[in-house]
């Protein structure tokens, strides 16, 4: 009967005081799983890191000669750098959504639902795991700052990292909000294929939004990626004023304050996460 006695001593030992701790442990468990997977799948991680680096080196290198510095305010590789950081954090963030669906298909999600914690805690854990893995990968790619002609200034790198954490949180939440309502991984992949290309090109990561026709600019005004890229770009301009690039997001011809952009990103992420939690809480 050792199992039963162990159980009862544990449950009588202050059920209320350990409630929050239990939920936190569950969040930690999910983050731990994401980090273990990141460390275990080295090839996959390396490929995910290689992809944005290739954009910076090949696309950036090739177009640098063609695009005059005057139109952007900076060299093309420097211009591309915030967009590349955005791509780096976006891939692992979206993977979280894909994994929610594959976990559902494989039955792993059901095992998670058996855990004696709230469903919102499980979603929060997935979100935290996605944000953290994305930020880790973003931090690695910050090492390429020199290629873009940026100084290795600790404050700049720290601010950029904070911006990337914020951006990955928002993208992870959006991916989760999408994933909770979809049952099949194929649908999610197809949807991403359709949606990601316009989101990326309307983010101002590859070319200035001012070059776009008016209707496309209107779309980019509601594109969360555009705010993320703009945030990163303005952080660079803040610390390295001679690297100030052409303006991104503008509301009626004026740039919104930096903190407002950050707050909008955070709010978008929180709303998406709340909605995802609401959907996820419905019994199956």
């Amino acid at each position: 009967m050792s199992a039963l006695t162990w159980e009862s001593s544990e449950t009588t030992g202050g059920e209320r005081t350990t409630r929050l701790r239990r939920e936190l442990r569950a969040v930690h468990a999910l983050v731990h799983r994401d980090l273990l997977r990141l460390a275990g799948q080295r090839t996959h991680t390396a490929l995910m890191l290689l992809h944005p680096a290739l954009y910076l080196l090949i696309l950036g290198g090739g177009l640098a000669a063609l695009i005059p510095q005057a139109s952007l305010g900076v060299g093309y590789q420097a211009y591309l750098f915030p967009g590349m950081l955005m791509m780096t954090v976006q891939t692992p963030a979206i993977m979280v959504g894909i994994r929610l669906i594959t976990d559902r298909e494989s039955g792993y999600l059901r095992e998670l639902l058996m855990a004696p914690v709230r469903r919102s805690t499980l979603l929060l854990g997935s979100c935290a795991g996605g944000t953290l893995t994305a930020a880790v990968q973003g931090a690695v790619l910050l090492g390429l700052a020199g290629v873009a002609g940026l100084p290795y200034d600790p404050v700049l790198l720290g601010l950029l990292l904070a911006g990337m954490v914020l951006a990955s949180f928002t993208v992870t939440s959006l991916a989760l909000a999408l994933a909770v309502s979809l049952r099949r991984a194929e649908t999610f992949h197809t949807l991403l294929g359709v949606v990601m290309m316009p989101l990326l090109f309307l983010s101002g990561g590859f070319f200035p939004l001012t070059a776009l026709p008016a209707w496309a600019r209107a779309l980019s005004d509601v594109n969360p990626l555009a705010y993320a890229v703009d945030l990163l770009r303005r952080i660079i301009a803040l610390r390295v004023p001679d690297q100030a690039a052409a303006a991104g997001i503008e509301w009626a011809g004026r740039q919104p304050p930096l903190f407002l952009e950050a707050a909008l990103l955070l709010a978008g992420g929180v709303v998406a996460l709340l909605w995802a939690t609401h959907r996820f809480n419905r019994p199956e």
Partner: peptide
Amino acid sequence: HIHARLYGL
């Protein structure tokens, strides 16, 4: 280990 933590150990 992950499962144990999910159960609040």
